[in-house]
Simulated assay, not measured.
Amino acid sequence: MKGDARDPRGLIREAYRIDGITAGECRTIFLDWALGVPADQDTKTEVKALLVQYADEPTSHPMTQTLIAALRDAAPAKRRGGRAGRQ
């Protein structure tokens, strides 16, 4: 079995196993994982469950930091430049 119900492809689990993984690599892995979450499931709920599942990992680990950041609300969109933004 590669992963579990929350992480079927084992992406998050493998991220914790990679020595020297960077924050950028964790964000890429997280995005790949998030795109695989079924549309009928709440991603934030799944992220919270992953944080509980990996609670024994250090909070300084880049994947833990990525998961925590995923729970924050996104900043409101700013005005885009160009012709469309002026009209």
Rank of each mutant, 00 (worst) to 15 (best):
M1G: 08
M1V: 08
G3I: 00
G3E: 05
D4C: 01
A5S: 09
A5W: 06
R6W: 03
R6S: 03
R6M: 01
R6Q: 02
R6P: 00
D7F: 01
D7K: 03
P8D: 07
L11D: 09
L11F: 07
R13F: 09
A15P: 15
Y16H: 08
Y16L: 07
Y16I: 14
I18G: 04
D19T: 14
D19L: 12
G20C: 05
I21Q: 01
T22Y: 06
T22D: 08
G24S: 04
G24A: 03
E25N: 11
R27H: 11
T28L: 11
I29G: 04
F30N: 01
F30C: 02
F30T: 02
F30E: 02
L31V: 08
W33S: 06
A34M: 11
A34L: 07
L35M: 13
V37W: 04
V37K: 04
A39Q: 15
D40R: 15
Q41S: 07
Q41N: 05
Q41C: 05
D42T: 05
K44G: 03
K44W: 01
K44P: 01
E46S: 10
E46Q: 14
V47M: 05
A49S: 12
A49V: 00
L50T: 04
V52L: 07
Q53A: 10
Y54Q: 03
A55W: 07
A55Y: 04
T59N: 12
T59V: 14
T59A: 12
S60W: 07
S60R: 11
S60K: 13
P62N: 13
P62W: 00
M63L: 10
T66P: 00
L67I: 08
L67M: 10
I68R: 01
I68E: 00
I68D: 00
A70W: 00
R72P: 06
D73W: 04
A74H: 08
A74K: 12
A74I: 12
P76R: 10
P76N: 10
A77G: 09
K78Y: 11
K78S: 15
R79W: 05
G81R: 15
G82F: 03
G82M: 07
R83M: 13
A84S: 11
A84W: 08
A84E: 10
G85W: 09
G85M: 13
R86Q: 14
